Simulated assay, not measured.
Amino acid sequence: MRVRMTGLAGAAAVAALLVGAAPASAAPGDASAYGARLHVTLLGSPAVTAEPFAAADANGRGQNTFAGVDLTGILKTGVINASASRDENSGGVHSRASTADVRLDLLAKATGKISAELVEADCAATQKGLTGKAKLVGVDLGKLGRVDADPAPNTKLDVQLAGVKIAEVVFNEQIRNNDGSLTVNAIHIRLLQGVLGSIGTGDVIISSATCGPAGLPIPMASGAGLWIGLGLLGAAAAPAAAVALRRRASLNAA
């Protein structure tokens, strides 16, 4: 009887180890996205702060839509769509934000009005790593210059007024975060503080997606991971069960 109880106790210990380890070792990655966010203070005007529009998150609202932003003298957009998802089987995550009919009046004094038919940011994390990209459709940068429809990561154009740099615009900005995730900002405008001729300070981000790193490929607590866990449990318990049977057979023979 003692031997049989020992075998069951060993099996229970292995089971507890598997179940207890599952949440920590199989936690998947995260992903999020939004269409626009800004915090600017223009000269002679109060600060304007707008929280992320159409925010989506793989752990909450996976898809979100916003009818459009209308901030006079700063930014106007059409429909914003954002999505963030996680594949529980592979551990991969994906996020995307798209902002339609963008019109940026913030820099009009220096560049004229900047506009785009569509501004997209895309981010994906798999077991192979993280990738991100931005796509710009129908972009008109006025006096600022030109940029490709698929700009290279961290493409930057300087904004000057009367020969003085007052801002910079980054296209396909890619930021590697300390937690291992990747953030892709399709357009990021930075107003430079404390420069002669400055129109103000702050940041405007249009279409942002963050993802990764990917989680473990198979959650231990469900699906295929559960069958793997049960298989490991059986393999661990088998030697103890075999010893118990041999000892029982010896006792019966005696």
Rank of each mutant, 00 (worst) to 15 (best):
A152N: 07
A152L: 13
P153Y: 00
T155H: 08
K156N: 10
L157V: 01
L157D: 01
L157Y: 03
V159W: 03
Q160E: 15
A162H: 15
A162K: 14
G163M: 07
V164Y: 08
V164R: 15
I166Y: 09
I166T: 09
I166M: 11
A167Q: 06
E168F: 08
V169K: 09
V170A: 14
V170M: 14
E173Q: 15
E173D: 10
I175W: 01
I175V: 10
R176L: 04
R176K: 13
R176G: 08
R176W: 00
N178M: 15
D179F: 13
G180P: 02
G180Y: 13
G180C: 06
S181R: 04
S181N: 06
L182Q: 04
L182F: 01
L182E: 03
T183D: 14
V184M: 08
N185K: 15
A186T: 03
A186F: 02
I187M: 06
I187K: 02
H188T: 11
I189Q: 07
R190W: 03
L192G: 04
L192F: 07
L192R: 11
G194K: 08
G194S: 11
G194I: 03
G194Y: 06
G197T: 02
S198Q: 14
S198H: 03
S198N: 08
I199S: 11
I199N: 11
G200A: 07
T201C: 00
G202D: 01
D203L: 10
D203Y: 12
V204W: 08
I205D: 15
I205V: 13
I206R: 04
S207Q: 00
S207E: 03
S208G: 14
S208A: 15
S208E: 15
A209Q: 06
A209L: 05
A209V: 04
T210M: 14
C211K: 00
G212L: 01
P213I: 00
A214S: 13
G215W: 09
G215E: 02
G215Q: 01
L216V: 12
L216I: 04
I218D: 13
P219S: 10
P219G: 05
M220L: 15
M220K: 06
M220F: 12
A221M: 11
A221C: 05
S222T: 13
S222R: 13
G223M: 13
L226K: 10
L226R: 10
L226Q: 12
W227E: 03
W227Q: 05
W227D: 05
I228C: 07
G229F: 10
L230D: 07
L230P: 07
G231I: 04
L232N: 08
G234E: 01
A235F: 08
A235P: 10
A236Y: 15
A236G: 15
A237E: 09
A237Y: 12
A238M: 13
P239S: 01
P239L: 03
P239Q: 02
A240E: 12
A240V: 13
A240L: 15
A241N: 07
A242D: 07
A242Y: 12
A242N: 09
A242S: 11
V243M: 05
V243D: 07
A244M: 10
A244L: 07
